[in-house]
């Protein structure tokens, strides 16, 4: 990235634009530095790093860190556990959000606005507020140290954002479409499944990427609800392995990257949805 590129892309050279471009490029480099650092460290041996060679470009491709991480059976367990939580919890919260979102958008009733706001407000509270009672609840149910509490909690904690987004999306489906379907003999359920949902695929894409990412990245709930190693999720495992590979910085780097891989992939492919979801959730909340 340099000036020549900037001016080449523009019909006429504009000093302001060039200055802005340089500014942004510098900031972008600063912003990228941490991520690049991890990437570099994951490609180097611990000795290299300790000798202060972290910030030099790797001369040869050193992949042992990744090999070590990928061969670790614990990592496989963490990955599997996280998937086993993230997939059903994402699906579950979206399904529930679809139901409530439909009612709030298309079947409003006296007081539904207040109820809607109350649910949406739920997304802003720090989870610490319900930590202890949930701990007690799952302890009482004998579900501590299983994956179930995380699934349940993520479904429940996903309801506000899913309700918000689905309601906002369903609100854009014209009322006349629902009415036309009703006149044709459709029930509300059929209006939802045959008309509203097929039109809401973008919203579903937004929500799935958002929910999956959040659940994948979550740390607090498994920290509270799990104990044994074979129930850990990837983020919890990451912290745990940090102790195990305490000075093996390269391995830690590789670990971080691999743990972030699913969300990075989601980000790369669904960036548009991701950003839309973030701003939509934020702007109307």
């Amino acid at each position: 990235m340099n000036d020549r590129l900037a001016s080449a892309a523009m019909p006429s050279f504009n000093p302001w634009q060039a200055a802005i471009f340089v500014c942004l490029a510098v900031l972008a480099l600063l912003f990228l530095a941490p991520t690049i650092g991890v990437l570099l460290s994951s490609l180097k041996t611990t000795e290299d790093i300790a000798l202060g060679k972290l910030w030099s470009f790797p001369t040869s491709l050193y992949l042992d860190n990744f090999r070590t991480v990928l061969a670790d059976p614990a990592i496989h367990t963490y990955f599997l556990n996280t998937l086993l939580i993230a997939v059903p919890a994402t699906a579950g919260s979206i399904v529930l959000g679809i139901l409530s979102g439909y009612v709030f958008a298309k079947l409003p009733f006296r007081g539904s606005d207040v109820l809607f706001l109350a649910i949406v407000a739920g997304m802003f509270f720090p989870p610490q507020v319900i930590l202890i009672p949930l701990f007690r609840l799952f302890n009482g149910l004998g579900l501590l140290d299983t994956l179930w509490p995380m699934i349940f909690v993520h479904i429940a904690m996903g309801i506000p954002i899913c309700t918000l987004m689905m309601r906002n999306f369903f609100a854009t489906v014209p009322a006349a479409l629902r009415e036309a379907a009703i006149i044709e003999g459709a029930s509300e359920w059929q209006v939802l499944t045959k008309v509203a949902l097929p039109l809401s695929l973008p919203a579903l894409a937004v929500l799935s990427t958002l929910q999956f990412t959040w659940i994948w990245n979550d740390f607090l709930w498994p920290l509270i609800f799990t104990q044994s190693d074979d129930k850990r999720t990837i983020m919890l495992g990451l912290v745990f392995l940090q102790g195990q590979y305490s000075v093996a910085w390269g391995i830690q780097g590789a670990l971080s990257l691999i743990a972030s891989l699913p969300t990075l992939i989601v980000f790369l492919f669904f960036q548009r949805y991701f950003i839309k979801g973030m701003t939509m959730g934020a702007v109307k909340g």
Partner: peptide, 19 residues
């Protein structure tokens, strides 16, 4: 580029900054 860190988990971000 500026948006990328958002999709990283706080744990990973924390670890990066520890380094």
């Amino acid at each position: 580029i500026f948006y990328l860190p958002i999709c990283l988990s706080a744990i990973v971000v924390g670890q990066i900054w520890v380094w």
